[in-house]
Design a protein around this nucleic acid. Structure first.
Length: 508
RNA sequence: GGCUCCUUCGUCUAGUGGUCCAGGACGUCUGGUUCUCAUCCAGAAAAUCGCGGGUUCGACUCCCGCAGGAGUCACCA
């Protein structure tokens, strides 16, 4: 029976750099019909952040990583908050005291700092075990009698070599110099991570510990504890770091690593996020790029996890998102996408009416859209879905077409087709357009199309240049339905007014 | 500094001794298609496989050394 766990501490949000230690254990457990546990490691009361647990729940739920044992859902190995498991840790700690492998740390922090400095000056590595107090030699009975809250309990290490196997990193080994007397139970009576996770994983029958490589250097100390406790250790799966887009640093909150859940508000689909993250540092050896959760469950294997770190690339994430957007739109219709939008923010979109026609996104247009013919609305709908890269753009895009746009000359100047042209030239082209269109007597799609065509001939510009200019001047949108349709819908007066506005804006 | 890990196109990666003068994807550039913009399609540029030795008929692939990068040395996880 495969059992894995995700064991975050509630000290903040889950960011891109550490969410793979939830995704991979989920896949490992679920593909074998095993158990995926969610345990909260809240033994550090100082760093506890209110609401962090909810953020974790929200993130996992959004990604579709359902745990079948843990907080909220319960299970036979609870409680799943470490802060509620104190007695269990103390029971195991006593076992270590009784076997002579744990002792009371009576050293003050000032003393410890002194040792550290002295060792530094002597250029020898600081190890606590070189400075054990005489109380370390007390008999188990005496230690048990003296132990009370306020005194930390330390592991009594024995220097030796360790060799072990990591499912990702392979065979590893270290020398005796890395072993030290680490704290098992802190002065406040709660265990350290180092001790607590070993006990919990054992009691919860965890078969694979999936965690970041930063724990690798602590491995010998953990192995020593397993040994002293006379219990078998799970398999170790160490995940390489995710690097920040720039530099060579591990992605971390300090460097502005974004919360995974923030991407939800940005309009990234959970399918795309899961797909991208799972494939960052893992692949099945084929050239496949798109995986649903079900497909990941089928293809995933631990031995194909990369052992070098990977850089987070938002561009590729957005590409993935575009793929998924289109996939879901094609397979499930606009309503399915809309449901995902409304769950985050529906500021400028009409709120969910009772019994809406889910398959017709037009129902969710802002009020102002009603002033436009249905044909135009539908055209806008298809044009938007063809171009959508990020779901939240939907909100902004509706304003391009249905609200009065805000003038932004930079959009013209920075346009990839227009930046080759001078501002005078742009202004000239717009003036010619206004002149041509002013003469138009019948203002409809057909007459507009022929007017645009002859304008193209007269100016000798490339279609992409002339039409991009007119499009932006008209709608301030980077794309739009066909120009003739747009102008027909806007009407002569409004179209010309917007073009003239753009001319004025260019002048300033 | 000690210890440990890592090192193939800008980025994610394929590659387990010959089929690799290194393949795919993102991004970039060019062209085509669709009503002009997104998509889609085609093509191009892009890695002396970190460096130096060795083993071998033959190495990106095995061994050794070096360099660079990262992680870790808490009563944090």
């Amino acid at each position: 029976m495969t059992t894995t766990r995700f064991a975050p501490s509630p000290t903040g949000y889950i960011h891109i750099g550490n969410v793979r230690s939830a995704i991979y254990p989920y896949l490992i457990a679920k593909q074998k019909n095993g158990t995926f546990i969610l345990r909260i490691e809240d033994t550090d009361r100082a760093r506890y952040v209110d609401g962090a647990t909810n953020l974790i729940l929200e993130t996992l739920t959004w990604l579709g990583l359902a745990w079948n044992e843990g907080i909220i859902v319960g299970g036979k190995h609870g409680p799943y908050y470490q802060s509620e498991r104190k007695e269990i840790y103390h029971k195991w700690a006593k076992k270590l005291i009784e076997s002579g492998r744990a002792y009371l740390d009576t050293t003050s922090s000032e003393q410890i700092n002194g040792y550290r400095k002295a060792d530094n000056v002597k250029k020898v590595p600081y190890l606590y075990r070189n400075h054990r107090p005489k109380e370390a030699d007390l008999s188990p009975e005496e230690i048990l009698k003296l132990w009370h809250e306020g005194i930390p309990l330390r592991f009594k290490s024995e220097p030796k070599n360790y060799e072990w196997h990591d499912e990702v990193m392979g065979d590893l080994k270290t020398g005796p110099e890395v072993l030290d007397d680490i704290i098992l139970i802190k002065a406040d009576g709660l265990p350290t991570y180092n001790f607590a996770h070993i006990i919990d994983d054992y009691e919860m029958n965890v078969t694979h510990i999936v965690r970041g490589v930063e724990y690798l250097s602590s491995m010998p100390n953990y192995l020593a504890i397993y040994e002293a406790l006379e219990i078998n250790h799970p398999k170790f799966v160490s995940l390489p770091h995710v690097l920040a887009p720039q530099g060579n640093k591990k992605l971390s909150k300090r460097d502005g690593a974004k919360s995974v859940i923030d991407y939800k508000d940005d309009g990234v689909l959970p399918e795309a996020m899961l797909n991208y993250l799972a494939c960052l540092g893992w692949n099945d050896g084929t050239e496949r790029e798109i995986y649903s959760k079900e497909e990941l469950l089928k293809s995933f294997s631990i031995d194909r996890i990369q052992n070098s770190s990977a850089r987070f690339d938002e561009t590729k994430l957005l590409w993935q998102n575009g793929q998924w957007l289109r996939k879901i739109f094609d397979e499930q219709g606009a309503g399915a996408l809309y449901d995902r939008t409304i769950s985050s923010d529906s500021a400028s979109l009409k709120s969910h009416d009772s019994n809406p026609d889910r398959d017709n996104l037009v129902n969710f247009w802002p009020e102002s859209a009603k002033n436009y013919p249905e044909e135009y609305q539908k055209s806008v709908l298809s044009i938007i879905y063809d171009r959508l890269k990020v779901l939240s753009d939907l909100r902004e895009m509706t304003t391009y077409f249905f609200e009065d746009p805000e003038i932004n000359v930079d959009m013209i100047i920075d346009n990839r087709f227009l930046k080759k042209l001078s501002e005078d030239e742009l202004e000239d082209l717009l003036k010619q357009t206004v002149e041509k269109l002013s003469d138009l007597e019948n203002w409809n799609e057909d007459t507009l199309q022929s007017a645009l065509n002859s304008l193209l001939e007269e100016t000798g510009k490339k279609p992409a240049e002339l039409f991009s200019l007119i499009r932006i001047a008209l709608s301030y949108a980077p794309f739009s339905p066909a120009l003739n349709l747009t102008m027909a819908v806007l009407g002569k007066e409004r179209s010309l007014a917007r073009l003239n506005q753009a001319i004025t804006a260019l002048n300033n």
